[in-house]
Design a protein around this nucleic acid. Structure first.
Lengths: 228, 228
DNA sequence: CGCGGCTTTGATGTTCATCAAGTAAAGTGG
DNA sequence: CCACTTTACTTGATGAACATCAAAGCCGCG
């Protein structure tokens, strides 16, 4: 094996490539490209050709698209170990969605043709991809259905809990989204996101300092997320 | 090859199994089970163990789940050639969704372990599965985002156009869904589905005889679906 | 310093869910 | 087959949830 390859040490190797060895690993390793993006930068643009299989090594990204009237809809937020290279990579030749960095991020890019050629030789890798992809698709679909049943306050609460519990692991954190982006994610207006946040503050559930949020009363926030 | 096997002649063979021959095809062929369901019958129940890989040979089915308050949400409608065996089959051991027959339907069931063992030997089959699955996931996600941006009339129009153009290929057809089910699909109340339909009738866009719908003015219906 | 974008709050009107009540259709048991 | 019950469908009236509009403060940036 090529001794200069560092993929063997990558903490994400197990994600897709646990059954990869020798030539196949070398092929990935020598062909891969890591790219850095700073906060706000575009990583993938809707409508462009799909050339690479992309996944997130570090950072945080949003996945979104433009609706018929030109407004953006956020589909999901992904962190490392979430599958990033989008659902459509194996069925389309163009991206259906855009991706941009919410925090400084690093991606690892592998040529689609390399992935394809390896997967066709290595069914276990393909099965692994299948498994990862269905997890992601499932999460997006279930979240979207869950959000649809909630009232506005419940949607905002849902988002805050997601950041607190799944991303930052703390009751205090900096929101990586603007109010407008929060609105685009949960399908409501910016003004009403702000109103919900203000209500939570008035009710003593949150403390808010600009973008930094401190969840004071997690229990009631959770019950709002579930039943509101 | 086993001469009694009819899979070779199945019009759906190309869906997943175009690169399948010899022993592998025999394995599928001898292990598969076809099942018939009449309208309204349950095919898959949310929460049960996943044992088989299931796809639709004929008929029409709905894919749905129960939300936290026990109400049903319809996730998608599938016809043959659409991938039916759900997204979660490769990542979960229990179904996240239920499936039931909207019209008399026939499924072909193959043991998951057979699919898995063949896919791990045959990367091209796995890639093919990957491609099919991402198409389905994409469609569900894009439809759900599209519906979210529309007003009620637009959602109902969207549904009618789907049945007319993608399922029945005619401007006159019998709705396979009750008013209640239409509401569960597009996220509104039964009463408002009915109100939208009545408005379309008053405006001369539709003729309605119970479940049978005749779209008189397709163009305005389309513009309502797009901009409403 | 001024401009544009982000945030916040209030006032207003529209869209939609809920409630109520009635009709039609479809299954159920005697 | 008919009374009976249940389920689906329909319409109207009401109020709540929410979007839109308007205005002002704030902050970063050229």
């Amino acid at each position: 094996m090529d001794p200069s390859c560092t993929c063997e040490l990558c903490e994400l190797k197990g994600l897709f490539f646990e059954n990869l060895e020798g030539d196949q690993l070398d092929m990935i390793c020598s062909g891969k490209v890591e790219k850095e993006f700073s906060q706000g930068e575009s990583i993938i643009k809707e409508g462009t050709m799909i050339k690479d299989f992309v996944y997130l090594k570090s950072g945080l990204v949003k996945l979104f698209r433009s609706d018929s009237s030109g407004k953006e809809q956020i589909i999901s937020i992904s962190k490392p170990f979430d599958y990033v290279s989008l659902l459509s990579v194996f069925s389309n030749d163009q991206y259906n969605y855009s991706v941009s960095a919410l925090e400084d991020s690093v991606t690892c890019n592998i040529k689609m043709e390399d992935i394809r050629s390896i997967a066709s030789d290595n069914g276990n890798l393909a099965l692994n991809l299948l498994k990862r992809m269905s997890k992601v698709a499932d999460k997006i679909i279930l979240d979207s259905l869950a959000i649809r049943t909630k009232h506005l306050r419940g949607r905002v609460a849902f988002l805050l809990i997601y950041f607190s519990q799944d991303v930052y692991f703390s009751s205090e954190f900096d929101l990586p989204l603007s109010r407008k982006e929060m609105a685009e994610y949960v399908g409501m207006t910016t003004e009403n996101v702000i109103r919900s946040l203000s209500e939570f503050r008035r009710d003593g559930i949150l403390k808010i300092y600009g973008k930094t949020i401190h969840i004071v009363n997690m229990d009631t926030l959770k019950s709002i997320a579930e039943f509101g």
